[in-house]
């Protein structure tokens, strides 16, 4: 059996497969359907300093090989997370990473500081790329200055590993990656959703309550592979790849493009145990190709 363990920014993971924020709840929702300890890391729902109600319904539209969502970071806030959710998930036998979002650099920093006090959360993923909130979110992720300002503020308030989740809705994603690397990010994950839109032609209005939303699913995979490839060539820190991964073959594409680990998002809605199936598939592929370790294929495509 090939060795599929990886280490991202100091985090040891049993497999290179993580579950993406906003697609796997807090893990517990899936506990009856998949063995959580077989997942490399669970990145829990986007958390903000203060509670958020999110956007109005409808928040979702199915699209060709994917879906649009405009959930808008609905969550009960960092304090609620620390007091009520953390105690339920702290003993899961996997890495529990919290996805942190905000509407100003100070906001992000304070949220990260609160999460930083939780012993069993070894890292955060910094979401500077949510397309569904008016203030903050993607606004920071689309300029090098904006991205740098958030990472700088959070770096000063949080000492454990920071993974910065990048937006594909930019001219040059590698520039953004370099900007956050320079401010002390330990890794980057790419990509967040692509901004999209769908229209109900009978009602002659957008399908989503706020008109636009984030596109995810296999439809975005080629864009995501390209982003990972560009970013991996530009930065020295590890890259976590995501965007439309449904199968082990998809995951291997990302690894070859330069991702040191991958996240699975939308596919969790179709197969709740997909993260384990993909890890098994990676292992089988490596065995079949005579590879002793997953490290042998990471970044193989230059």
């Amino acid at each position: 059996m090939a060795d599929i363990r990886v280490n991202i920014a100091g985090l040891d993971m049993k497999t290179p497969v993580m579950t993406a924020s906003g697609t796997f709840g807090y893990g517990l929702e899936f506990a009856d359907l998949v063995n959580l300890s077989d997942i490399g890391a669970i990145i829990v729902k986007g958390t903000t300093l203060l509670p958020r109600e999110g956007n109005d319904y409808p928040r979702m539209a199915e699209t060709p090989s994917g879906m649009l969502n405009c959930v808008g970071l609905q969550n009960k806030g960092a304090e609620y997370f620390c007091q009520h959710i953390y105690p339920q998930i702290k003993d899961l036998q996997t890495n529990v990473i919290v996805n942190v979002s905000g509407s100003s650099p100070d906001d992000y920093a304070e949220c990260a500081r609160l999460i930083g006090e939780l012993d069993k959360v070894p890292a955060i993923e910094l979401n500077i790329s949510c397309p569904n909130v008016r203030q903050g979110g993607m606004a920071f992720g689309v300029t090098t200055d904006g991205a740098a300002s958030v990472v700088r503020a959070v770096r000063a308030a949080y000492s454990k590993p920071i993974i910065v989740k990048l937006s594909p809705n930019v001219t040059n994603i590698a520039d953004i990656a370099l900007a956050v690397e320079a401010e002390g990010a330990d890794a980057v994950s790419c990509i967040n959703t692509l901004m999209g839109m769908a229209i109900d032609i009978e009602r002659r209005r957008p399908k989503l309550s706020i008109s636009t939303g984030g596109l995810s699913g296999p439809a975005i995979k080629p864009v995501a592979v390209r982003c990972v490839w560009q970013v991996a060539k530009a930065v020295k820190i590890p890259v976590v790849g995501l965007g439309g991964i449904m199968t082990a073959a998809d995951a291997i594409e990302f690894l070859m493009a330069g991702a040191s680990a991958i996240e699975i998002g939308t596919a969790n809605f179709i197969d709740p145990a997909v993260s384990v199936h993909v890890a098994e598939g990676i292992s089988e592929w490596l065995d079949r190709h005579g590879c002793k370790s997953v490290q042998e294929i990471i970044g193989q495509v230059q």
């Binding site: 906003g22 929702e29 899936f30 979702m60 609905q74 809605f269």
Partner: peptide, 20 residues
């Protein structure tokens, strides 16, 4: 309209006295 059916994606929300 739903995606996951498990309470993870937060797409099928209804406004209630307890919020979405």
């Amino acid at each position: 309209m739903m995606a996951c059916g498990l309470g993870a994606c937060l797409c099928c929300v209804e406004k209630t006295v307890r919020g979405n």
